[in-house]
Amino acid sequence: MTAIFGVAAGIAFLGALGVVVARRTLYSALALIVNMLALAVLFLLLDAQFLAAVQVIVYTGAVMVLFVFIIALLSPGAQERLNPLELRLIVGVCAALLFTVVVVRLTLNGITVTPSGHFHGTIGPFAPSLVDRHGQVEVLGEQLFTTFLLPFEVTSLLLLVAAVGAVHLARGHGRRASQ
């Protein structure tokens, strides 16, 4: 399991780097797809089967296809060269390194995990074994429709709003066109 984690995490990390450093936009998109697929594997490792499926279907499937479409539409061949001495780049990288180190350090410092794989402190009722016994989707669905019903419904409304907004924006200046 540790080996699987190592490989998947490495691929995810490289994919993430690839998104930022690739010169061509299309390569960035492909690197992001790689990253997301690796992330789906990591979700499986974390006993989140349903999320792994959603990750592949929604993200890698729908969202990234949309991205590739737009890239093809707008700038199939655009390239961008990064100037390594640019102040913004240096500041950004330094801040990112600092951020990573501090947060990881804080995580190690503030949160302890017992050898049996549990946190100290409050532990929820959904142990992985229990979730597996009842079925991942069933437990998640029950949670969504009971405890998290309101956020769930609000999210559906958000999706509707986004769809309407996208249609409006895609129509361009509809008012002008109609005149």
Binding site: L46, D47, A48, F50, L51, V54, Q55, V58, Y59, A62, V63, L66, F67, V113, G117, H118, F119, T122, I123, G124, P125, F126, A127, P128, V131, V139, L140, Q143, L144, T147, F148, P151, F152, T155, L158, L159, V161, A162, A163, G165, A166, L169
Partner: peptide, 25 residues
Amino acid sequence: RFTHTMDGQVFALVVIAVAASEVVV
């Protein structure tokens, strides 16, 4: 996963939905 709750997964699901909306707009 490590605190044995489903909240994280539900939250992640909502984040995915938000991300999808955001990408579209």
